[in-house]
């Protein structure tokens, strides 16, 4: 295939993936990796490298807007990044040991779970009744704007939240995706951090987590410039568009359609992985 045509198709696919990924909270990687491997026959290791850099671009590009609104909790972010970065390095090391087919099966299972999770109703818990002693000592409790006023919230479940975050970091390092769904799950459901603070702090952390494994992937030659160029630029453009549109759109239908697509892709990744086609 001529390279300019390849770039054009990939850039369009990446814009769409970035747009839908940011609007549904699943991220662009869940679409990009199946698109590259299943449609273009790209080796999954190159696909992971390209996805990983686009994850950093998405996270960093969107962070500025969120930060201005005062939702992110910087202490929670830095504290949990200790878990995610250490585990991401472990994940990247593990990726070098596992066969591509096994990675594809794990990838399919993870995006399947993420898609199911994204369909669950979001209930805003708005903080725990009382903080646990560790969150007081670490000063994790914060406040965020609700209808123009600063609303304080308590953080709980620090130890289980930290451990689940390590799991998110491992997945991110192994598969080259942001694993934002697992991060939000840990902060929202376990640590009882308000949903808006969870999603924005998760976005803030995704780039740092991906950075931990990106250096390792670069050194191993997984980051192929001819492939990463259209993917990174496309996903960045799409996610910036998505973040802008997100404020206005009700995304229930979109969320369901996207989850259905991801579940189909998950099935195909698992099937092809089990058949040893990677």
């Amino acid at each position: 295939m001529p390279y300019p045509l390849f770039c054009l198709i990939l850039a369009c696919g990446s814009i769409l993936a970035g747009l839908l990924g940011s609007m549904t909270g699943l991220g662009g990687g869940v679409i990009i990796i199946p698109l590259l491997t299943l449609v273009f026959g790209v080796d999954i290791r190159y696909a992971i490298g390209a996805s990983l850099v686009s994850v950093i671009a998405t996270s960093s590009g969107a962070a500025a807007a969120y930060v201005r609104e005062g939702f992110t909790n910087i202490r929670v972010g830095i504290f949990l990044e200790v878990a995610t970065t250490l585990a991401a390095v472990g994940g990247a090391a593990l990726a070098g040991l596992l066969s591509p087919s096994i990675i594809a099966v794990v990838f399919g299972a993870v995006i399947f779970f993420s898609a199911i999770q994204s369909l669950q109703a979001q209930h805003d818990i708005s903080g725990a009744d009382r903080p646990d002693s560790l969150s007081v000592r670490l000063r994790l409790n914060g406040e965020y704007p609700v209808a123009g006023k600063m609303q304080p919230y308590n953080v709980t479940g620090v130890v289980p939240g930290f451990l689940l975050m390590a799991g998110a970091g491992l997945i991110s390092g192994l598969l080259g995706i942001g694993s934002g769904v697992v991060k939000v799950l840990a902060m929202d459901r376990i640590m009882r951090i308000p949903f808006k603070v969870s999603t924005t702090t998760s976005n803030f952390m995704i780039g740092v987590t991906a950075c931990a494994s990106a250096g390792i992937y670069l050194g191993r030659g997984y980051i192929e410039p001819a492939l990463a160029m259209p993917v990174m630029l496309g996903v960045l453009a799409g996610s910036l568009l998505g973040a802008r549109y997100l404020a206005r759109a009700r995304t229930v239908v979109l969320r369901r359609v996207f989850a259905a697509v991801v579940i189909l892709l998950a099935a195909e990744m698992i099937f092809n992985g089990l058949m040893g086609r990677f």
């Binding site: 390279y3 030659g221 997984y222 192929e224 160029m229 259209p230």
Partner: peptide
């Protein structure tokens, strides 16, 4: 870099279907 790459490369895809790793200076 992308603009220059588009101007200099005609075909690329077969390279990516099997993994060799990007060449050493780019790592």
């Amino acid at each position: 870099g992308g603009v220059l790459l588009l101007a200099s490369r005609a075909y690329v895809t077969p390279l990516l279907t099997s993994f060799t790793g990007v060449r050493a200076p780019l790592r």
